[in-house]
Every structure is written in structure tokens, then in C-alpha cells.
């Protein structure tokens, strides 16, 4: 990649998705764009970027931008935080009773490991289910496809996932392991670009968006955070990365990254 290639990609990422990509990080750019270039039939990343520049095709531009949006690929990332997320969902469930389902949104769900970890935990903790609706979204069409298929390689199912959960929630597939339909069916997928208008998604009791905001330009970060907050039901909980903050919401004591909408009374009830 030439410096011009890297500048172009960084600019496109900023314009299309608010992503802050440092053009000097040639290693990251090459690593992320390499597979895309191969998939699209180009001999090198440079040739791919030339095509992005010369053809101006939306599909190619998005293929590049999507590949550079962050994605976590481990199950049960930060196990201690995960326990807190699960506890939060169970508390919301206990509090809602007949008031309709608890709605959860994983806003930057990548290839699905985080949201499926939650889905598995909920099946284990509350097998009756039915009262939880889980939505998951990502910027990348390619990742959504993989996530919806629920197909993971032998390497992927060994990152963060215990063998006990592997034998309980997966079946053998031709290449790797497939999440059982019963788990997959609990999650609804949609492509969402978080810097666009998100009003159509409705409101949620819990919104997960860990470690994405720090990857955005300041203006985009502010806009996305505003949308995430607007998507919370009264008393709803927003979970960010441990070092990310949500001015405008109340930080939960002793739980870095957890923020609550609304009044102190709503927080106490949550």
C-alpha cells in the first residue's frame, strides 16, 4: 500500500462510518484489507485500493470500510464483565413480569460471539425464555452473514468458550462447528451503520456497545452515543468498554462501563 492508498482508506472510513483509522498503521490496514482484496479477486491490497479509487463503486468502498470497523472474535470476552451483563438482564427480567419482553440490542455484534454468549447464558439461566428479545447489528454485511449462519472454525470455538458449552450448544458441521438452531433463533440480525438515524430500531432495556466508541472520530462518537442513549427505555442500561464513558447517563458504581438512563429511582430499581 502506498501512503496515498492509506490516506484514501482512512478518509473513506471516517466519511462513511465515523471510524478513526490512523493511516500510519500500515500493518493493521494490510491485515484487514488483505482478505477483502483476495475475496474480491485482486492480486494485492494496492490493486484493490486502486479499484476503490478509480471505479468509485459503493460495494467496493463499503467492503473496505466494513473490514476496518472493529470486531471482537472471542466468546465471553471479559468473563467478569459478562457475568455483570447477564445479571443485569436477569434483573430486568425479574422486574418486568407481564410488561412484555426484555429487549436487548448488541449494537456492534461483529461475527456474533458476544451476543451468542449472552444467548447461551440466557438459555442456561432461564430455559423458559420467550420473554427476551435479542437484536444484533453490525456495520459489516460480511460479518452479519457469518454471524447469522452461526458457523465457527475449530479455532474460533476454543476462544473463550468452554468445552462444556461447546458440546451443549453446538453441533458438528462440515468445516468447524455450528451453533444449534435453538440458540441462533433467539437473535435477530440487521445491518446498522451507527452514525445513521437509528430511530426505527425502537427502544431497549439493555444496549451493548463495548469498545467501539473509542474507535470513532469525536463528532461521530458524540452522535453515536446520543443515538444509543436515545434507544434506551426509561431505566435502561448501556454497557460500554471499561474505559469508555457516557456523559448524560449515570455511571453505575463499581461497574466500569455500565451506565443507566433516567432517575435515581429507576437506577435503584434496576
Amino acid at each position: 500500500m502506498t501512503p496515498q492508498d492509506r490516506d484514501l482508506i482512512a478518509r473513506l472510513c471516517g466519511e462513511r462510518a465515523g471510524l478513526r483509522i490512523e493511516p500510519e498503521k500500515s500493518h493493521l490496514l494490510e491485515n484487514r484489507l488483505g482478505p477483502v482484496a483476495r475475496r474480491e479477486g485482486f492480486a494485492s491490497v494496492h490493486e484493490f485500493v486502486c479499484a476503490v479509487r478509480d471505479r468509485g463503486e459503493e460495494r467496493l468502498i463499503w467492503a473496505a470500510v466494513e473490514a476496518l470497523s472493529p470486531a471482537e472474535t472471542a466468546f465471553f470476552r471479559d468473563p467478569a464483565v459478562f457475568e455483570l451483563i447477564l445479571a443485569q438482564v436477569l434483573a430486568a427480567l425479574a422486574g418486568r413480569n407481564e410488561a412484555g419482553p426484555v429487549r436487548i440490542w448488541a449494537a456492534s455484534a461483529g461475527t456474533g460471539q458476544e451476543v451468542y454468549s449472552l444467548a447461551m447464558s440466557l438459555l442456561e439461566a432461564a430455559p423458559a425464555g420467550g420473554r427476551v428479545e435479542i437484536f444484533a447489528s453490525d456495520l459489516s454485511e460480511h460479518r452479519l452473514e457469518k454471524a447469522q449462519g452461526g458457523l465457527y472454525s475449530q479455532f474460533e470455538v476454543q476462544r473463550g468458550l468452554s468445552a462444556h458449552r461447546l458440546v451443549r450448544h453446538f453441533e458438528t458441521a462440515e468445516e468447524g462447528f455450528a451453533l444449534l438452531p435453538a440458540v441462533r433463533a433467539t437473535v435477530q440480525w440487521q445491518r446498522v451503520n451507527l452514525i445513521e438515524d437509528l430511530g426505527r430500531l425502537g427502544r431497549f432495556d439493555l444496549v451493548l456497545c463495548r469498545n467501539l466508541l473509542n474507535c470513532l472520530h469525536a463528532a461521530a462518537r458524540e452522535r453515536v452515543l446520543g443515538s444509543l442513549i436515545a434507544a434506551l427505555r426509561p431505566g435502561g442500561c448501556l454497557v460500554l468498554g471499561a474505559t469508555e464513558v457516557a456523559p448524560g447517563l449515570a455511571a453505575a458504581e463499581g461497574r466500569p462501563g455500565f451506565f443507566f438512563e433516567g432517575s435515581a429511582a429507576a437506577r435503584a430499581a434496576a
Binding site: A163, H164, L166, V167, T172
Partner: peptide
């Protein structure tokens, strides 16, 4: 998976 299950049933912690 059947073999992995067998190992866990015999008291293995993980695999």
C-alpha cells in the same frame, strides 16, 4: 463432540 462429551463426563475440566 461425542468423544469430547465422553471426556467431560469422565471428569475432565475442559478440552
Amino acid at each position: 463432540l461425542a468423544r469430547i462429551r465422553e471426556a467431560l463426563d469422565e471428569g475432565a475440566d475442559d478440552y
